[in-house]
Design a protein around this nucleic acid. Structure first.
Lengths: 125, 125
DNA sequence: CGGTATCCGCTCTGATACTG
DNA sequence: CAGTATCAGAGCGGATACCG
């Protein structure tokens, strides 16, 4: 039997996926692309993200060294977030993904419709 | 209040994420990078993937038009999978992610350790 | 304003058993 | 070999309420 070469220990690709491949992480990084931005502004930019998920995602990104948090002690408090230099190294990857989607998403959408239609025909009438 | 510009309807980036950003999808595409490959061979390459998840992921990729399934009606059955032309357009993106991980994963790992150590210091002894 | 804490449903995921 | 079916647990993610 062949050895698995796509393992969590050996495959760097897989480790990167652990960082980025969840529902909100990449979206939040994308929202930070334009520079320092306040918590509320991020929330306004990303449709459907809850306060809990935004806070949780930002905390995780901070832990990973991809985002910095700056608190200005005023009343009411102002909290700003920005990408670290490490965080900005992810941007080319995100932009490529965006470009891919712009170019090919329609094809995926069409494929889905065709597939679903074929499935429906296969069922008994 | 500002309008969200990162919504599922308008943001192509977000749609791409829906395709790729789950635990196994990108890994399976990566396993198919080298060309046509049998079901069992994919399973051998990817550590820890269960039969259920592999089947489910392949089916979803087929629906999205990224992978083709070829059944050879012999006994025992032989089923092969390959990337479609559309599927191969994702490879540059995956390779970039892999390169990013090779270059920067250590930084993330270090950041995590530093963050966790700081958290521990903040707790009462 | 920018959180934290809690509850709760739902999906994702893996084990196990069975089929052609 | 390549699946399908079923079950059960863990964790994601949302709604709500409260705090500095």
């Amino acid at each position: 039997m062949r050895e698995p070469d796509i393992s969590i220990e050996e495959c760097s690709y897989r480790r990167a996926l652990e960082i980025v491949s969840n529902k909100w992480t990449a979206l939040v990084i994308y929202a930070l692309e334009g520079g320092t931005i306040r918590y509320g502004a991020i929330k306004s930019r990303i449709a459907d993200i809850s306060q809990k998920m935004l806070t949780q995602t930002l905390k995780q990104l901070e832990r990973d060294g991809l985002v910095v948090r700056k608190v200005t002690p005023v009343v009411p408090p102002a909290v700003e977030y920005a990408l670290t230099p490490l965080g900005t190294t992810l941007l080319p990857f995100l932009r490529l993904l965006k470009g891919w989607s712009a170019e090919h998403y329609a094809s995926v959408s069409n494929a889905r419709e065709a597939y679903d239609a074929a499935q429906k025909d296969a069922l008994p009438g």
